[in-house]
Amino acid sequence: MPLLQALVQPAGWQPQASGTSAELRGLSVVSAAVAWASGAKGTVLRTVDGVTWTQLPVPDADKLDFRDIHAVDADTAVIMSAGPGAASRIYRTSDGGASWKLQLTNPDAEGFWDAIAFWDAKNGILFGDPVKGVFQVLVTADGGATWRQVADPKGLAAQANEGAFAASGTCLTVAGSGDAWFSTGGAENARVFHSADRGRSWRAAPVPIPAGAAARGIFSVGFRDGRTGIAAGGDYKEAALATVNGARTEDGGATWTAAPILPEGYMSVVVPVRGALDSFVAAGLAGSGYSTDGGKSWTVLDRTPMNTVGFATPAVGWAVGPKGLVMKYAGPILGKK
C-alpha cells in the first residue's frame, strides 16, 4: 500500500481538568480513550473516556513521587516512585486502581530509580542510577510482580558524576521484542546505553548533546524501531538555553549525530507517534515540537511547559506537566500513516 502523506497543520493541545496541583511526570497512553498519569504526592490519575480524569489513591504513598507509570489496559498498571533508597518503589494494580500491591522496594540506600518500560504485558525493565559505580537494571517476566537484577558490571559501568534524569519516565525506552536503551547526563559526556537481549548485556555510545553539569545531558530517548531513534535533553535549570538539545541515530544507537529540536531549549521527553511513520513529538519546559522525518527537521507545536507526552494515534495524545497540567492533543494527523 502506498504511503499517504497527511497535511500537517498546527497542533491542537487543549487543557483538561486533572483535579490535582501535583507535579505530573509519568504518562501511559493505552488508547484514544484510556490513559494513566502519575506524579508527586503519591498521585495517580486515570481516564477511561478520554475526557474525565479520576484520582486513584495509593495507600500510605502520599510522600512518594511516582515518576513513571506503565499501563496494560484500563485495569492493569505498574507505577514506579523515584527517590533515595527505599523511596524508590514499584506498585501494581489489576483492578483499575481500586487496590494497589507493593511489589518491590529499592534495597540499596545509594540507589535511585529513574524509569520503567515494558516490551509486552509480561516482560519489562527497570533502570536506576549507579550504585557503587554501576547502573541498576532489573527485569520482570510476570508483569511487574517480581523483579531480577541484571549483572553486567562492565557494560553498565558509569563515568564519574554520570547519572540519569527521572524527569519524564522516558530516559529508558524499549522497542520490538528485546531492544532497550537508556540515556545519561551529568558526566563529561552524555551517553546512550543499548541492550539487544532484554537488558542482559549493554554497550554505551557517546551522544553530541552537552553534559558536564549535574542538570545537563540527555533526559529522554525514543525509538520507532530497532534502528531509528532520537535523544533529547538540555539543562533543566536553563530551560531556554539555546544549545544542541537533540541527536538522532539510524543504527540502533551505535552512532549519533546532532539534530537540534524545536523549540530551542530544555526537552525532557521525545516519543515516536504511534501509527505515524517517522513522526516524533518532543516536549519540555521550553514547549513542544514535532518531526515527520525521523528527527531531521522540527516544527514548533506549542510553548506551554510540559514534562512528558504520549500518543495513542497520530491524532490523539496527552501531555502532563507542572502544577497538575493535563493537556489533550486532538487535532490534525501528525505525519504519515
Results as ranks from 00 to 15, higher is better:
Gly128Leu: 01
Asp152Arg: 10
Pro59Asn: 13
Cys171Pro: 04
Asp62Leu: 03
Leu156His: 05
Ala157Glu: 12
Asn123Asp: 00
Thr52Ala: 13
Gly96Gln: 08
Ala164Glu: 06
Ala74Gln: 13
Ser94Tyr: 12
Ser88His: 04
Trp119Asp: 09
Thr54Asn: 14
Gly83Phe: 03
Asp129Val: 03
Arg67Cys: 02
Asp142Ile: 14
Ala77Gln: 08
Asp65Arg: 02
Val139Asp: 00
Phe165Leu: 03
Val137Arg: 01
Ala86His: 14
Ala145Arg: 11
Arg92Asp: 10
Gln159Arg: 13
Val78Arg: 00
Pro107Val: 06
Asp152Thr: 08
Gly83His: 01
Phe112Val: 04
Asp62Thr: 00
Ser88Cys: 03
Asp60Ile: 02
Ala117Asn: 06
Ser168Glu: 01
Arg89Cys: 04
Val131Ala: 07
Trp113Thr: 00
Ala98Gln: 15
Thr93Ile: 15
Gly97Asn: 03
Lys132Arg: 02
Ala180Phe: 04
Asp142His: 10
Leu104Pro: 10
Asp95Phe: 12
Leu64Met: 08
Asp114Ala: 13
Pro130His: 11
Val134Met: 10
Asp114Arg: 06
Ala167Gln: 06
Phe118Leu: 09
Arg92Val: 06
Glu110Tyr: 05
Met80Asn: 05
Arg92Pro: 11
Asp60Asn: 07
Asp120Arg: 10
Tyr91Thr: 02
Lys122Gln: 13
Asp73Ile: 11
Trp53Asn: 00
Gly128Arg: 01
Thr105Leu: 13
Ala61Asp: 07
Phe118Pro: 05
Gln136Met: 07
Glu162Ile: 03
Asp65Cys: 08
Lys132Tyr: 12
Gly96Ser: 08
Val58Thr: 09
Pro57Ala: 15
Ala121Ser: 09
Val150Ile: 09
Ile125Asn: 01
Ile69Ala: 05
Thr170Val: 10
Val78Asp: 06
Leu102Thr: 11
Ala115Arg: 07
Thr54Ala: 15
His70Leu: 06
Thr146Leu: 13
Pro57Ile: 02
Val131Ser: 09
Ala158Ser: 10
Gln159Ile: 11
Ala158Ile: 08
Ala109Phe: 12
Thr76Asp: 09
Val72Thr: 12
Pro130Cys: 07
Thr105Ser: 15
Ala158Tyr: 05
Ala61Cys: 07
Asp65Phe: 06
Val137Tyr: 08
Leu172Ile: 08
Thr140Asn: 13
Ile90Asp: 01
Arg148Lys: 13
Phe118Val: 03
Pro130Tyr: 01
Phe135Met: 02
Ala121Thr: 09
Phe118Ala: 05
Ala74Thr: 07
Phe135Glu: 02
Met80Lys: 05
Asp120Cys: 06
Ala166Gly: 02
Asn106Gln: 13
Leu56Arg: 14
Ala82Lys: 00
Met80Glu: 04
Thr105Arg: 15
Ile116Ser: 09
Val150His: 06
Gln55Cys: 07
Asp60Gln: 08
Val134Asp: 06
Phe66Gln: 01
Asp114Gly: 04
Met80Cys: 07
Ala166Met: 02
Pro130Ala: 04
Lys154Gln: 15
Ser81Lys: 01
Pro130Asn: 05
Ala121Val: 12
